[in-house]
Design a protein around this nucleic acid. Structure first.
Length: 589
RNA sequence: GGGGUUGUAGCUCAGCUUGGUUAGAGCGCCAGUCUGUCACACUGGAGGUCGCGAGUUCGAGCCUCGUCGGCCCCGCCA
């Protein structure tokens, strides 16, 4: 098919092009036929340009334009000129093209939804017709931003002497961590590759090979349930460095974010970022990824247990639990219904109940008021800095659960009171550090690594590995932006002895260790340098830069929450022939 | 694995509480009119497997059960 090629894009022409002969190619956005005057908006990735036809001057052209419908692909030849009535809202709004010829490159059926930014079509339909959805300028903008992120990543890390090295997509399945996506081997009957949850061990081994600064933009796969910020395949900015400690790595990453925010948003962000311990994050904000754009700190009031009759409090204290609260400022007017909703909300996080105290009209209003002495009230007032009109929400539970409940309530109150709306265009970066090495898994009756089993313990906690492993802290760090974890990493173990010890603590036998991680232990014997790294979530970073709260807005072809791709219909059944080659039988249930 | 919510015209939704005549609205679409529109305007028109399958009932968009999807959350995600 031969056709006139565009001389310009649809977002390019300005008043200074007035008088030029131009050719545009693009999609028809709208046709406005005024009778004596016909306007056509032509759209491409770069913008929209108005075409105009005067039926009086060009009756034949006007007649042919009747068949033009939205989403037809056309070429149009004409002369750029100033508009009589400019449109100030678009960059090309001062000019238009008086066309003297056009041709249809392809027709289009009526699309199932309008190609426009302000549609509210349900997502099911948008995903089925993803190619149409992706024509919408707002989504195109998201992928331009995403592309800018790739560019900044490559230039920043190249400037810092990092090498991008590709790691395998078909790798060994590892038992720790997320569920693997498995790929059957045709040649080796009954054996499987796994898709990487992350290239963790490859990048560590690259350090042992002497590539002292590695980075890669890499797809990772985790077969776990989805969320609005989680897809089964996602993209990491994977980084690893030799001869570094935590601070060195954090400095490099802070520099990266500062540059990205500067280049993409023109925003100067303050470095170095605040460092906060896991313990403080939990006790003050009830989360290992606290949103620090607002205060509403949690206050611990466990000591009240000894001074009140309230059985829930004394029982909690006796069981070694924690009592704490948040002050929902100005929520003293909440209705019974609203308080019931908050209680239900707290129950999702494992709360058995939720105590509340309203301070309104100079009164103390609470279902537990009868258990609280004057002294108790005075204590609460001063601890929580209560003012008239406030609402205290109190949780009493085991340490982690107590703070997790209040952390979730803190966010919920911020949502309900418009605090989030107020801070929406601000950015708060910080590190959470000093994570515990292990957490106890009651189901499996053993310790599991909180970060991953290759994370180095803090030097001063090394001795705890033998005596009190649950007290040992790790050289791990998460980077938090506005309450979202956008990256996490650690200084790794580079000694064979320590690595073996950790595997043992995690309940792995020597045979098991050898089978699963023998290659790593071998590599650690041949001069492994001290090293550490981080993986940044490229999708989540792009979400922040584009201001969306849905990861599907920054992934071109995402899956639904049940892991389906509605456009191409995967996953799908395969031929018996394919299964036979792979020695696989499907078990019918 | 669990909870919530949702599926009605091409799209967005109302109708469901309390089953009952021909299931409505806005947008879009089609035809016509219109010389400065850009959410064009005006006039007229077409358009429905109420997600799917059973059941209850004289009668089901509405009630019951099952099932298939979408979205959000808990668990899970080292």
């Amino acid at each position: 098919m031969s056709f006139p090629r565009r001389s310009n894009t649809c977002g390019e022409l300005r008043p200074e092009n007035s008088g030029e002969k131009v050719v545009l190619n693009g999609w028809i956005s709208t046709v406005r036929d005024m009778g004596g005057l016909i306007f056509i908006d032509l759209r491409d990735r770069y913008g929209i340009t108005q075409l105009v036809i005067h039926p009086e001057l060009q009756p034949e052209l006007a007649a042919r334009s009747k068949e033009l419908k939205q989403e037809f692909v056309i070429w149009a030849k004409g002369t750029a000129r100033m508009r009589e009535n400019p449109n100030q809202r678009i960059p090309t709004g001062l000019i238009e093209i008086l066309i003297d010829e056009f041709g249809i490159l392809n027709t289009a059926e009526l699309p199932p939804f309008e190609i426009s930014d302000d549609i509210e079509t349900n997502e099911e339909l948008r995903l089925k017709y993803r190619y149409l959805d992706l024509r919408r300028p707002i989504l195109q903008k998201n992928f331009i931003v995403r592309n800018n992120v790739y560019q900044v990543v490559h230039s920043y890390f190249a400037d810092q002497n990092f090498l991008e090295i590709e790691t395998p997509v078909l790798m060994k399945s590892t038992p720790e961590g997320a569920r693997d996506y498995l790929v059957p081997s045709r040649i080796h009957k009954g054996k499987f590759y796994a898709l990487p949850q992350s290239p963790q061990l490859y990048k560590q081994i690259l350090m042992m090979s002497g590539f002292d600064r590695y980075m890669q933009i890499v797809k990772c796969f985790r077969d776990e349930d989805l969320r609005s910020d989680r897809q089964p395949e996602f993209t990491q900015i994977d980084v690893e460095m030799s001869f570094v400690d935590r601070e060195d790595l954090q400095t490099v990453i802070e520099g990266f974010f500062a540059r990205l925010w500067k280049e993409q948003l023109g925003v100067q962000i303050q470095t170095p970022f605040l460092r906060m311990s896991y313990h403080d994050a939990m006790e003050n904000y009830g989360s290992d990824k606290p949103d620090l754009r607002f205060e509403m700190k949690i206050k611990t009031i466990s000591e009240i247990a000894d001074k009140t009759e309230f059985k829930v409090f004394s029982d909690t204290a006796e069981a070694g639990g924690t009592i704490a609260l948040i002050n929902a400022k100005g929520c003293g007017n909440y209705s019974r219904k609203q308080l019931d909703e908050l209680t239900e909300f707290a129950k999702k996080y494992g709360a058995k109940g939720l105590s509340w105290i309203k301070f309104v009209d100079g009164q103390v209003n609470s279902p537990i008021a009868k258990f609280l002495s004057e002294e108790n009230i005075a204590y609460l007032r001063s601890t929580a800095e209560v003012e008239e009109g406030d609402l205290l929400l109190i949780a009493a539970d085991a340490w982690t659960r107590c703070y997790t409940i209040l952390g979730a309530l803190r966010l919920e109150i911020a949502r309900r009171t418009g605090i989030f709306e107020k801070v929406k265009n601000t950015y708060s970066f910080h590190w959470v550090v000093d994570f515990p090495m292990f957490e106890y898994d009651a189901e499996e009756n053993r310790y599991i690594a909180m970060h991953h089993p290759f994370t180095s313990p803090m030097d001063e906690d090394l001795h705890l590995l033998d005596s009190a492993p649950d007290k040992a802290r790790a050289k791990a760090y998460d980077i938090i932006l506005n309450g979202a974890e956008v990256g996490g990493g650690s200084i790794r173990i580079h000694s064979n002895d320590t690595q073996q010890k950790i595997f043992k603590l995690l309940g792995m036998s020597e045979e098991e260790t050898e089978l699963k991680f023998g290659f790593l232990l071998d590599a650690l014997k041949f001069g492994a340098p001290p090293h550490g790294g981080i993986a940044l979530g490229l999708d989540r970073i792009t979400m922040m830069l584009t201001g969306t709260d849905n990861i599907r807005d920054v992934i071109a072809f995402p899956k639904t929450t049940s892991g389906l791709s509605l456009m191409d219909g995967c996953p799908s059944l395969v031929d018996d022939k394919q299964l036979n080659e792979l020695h696989i039988n499907i078990v019918k249930d």
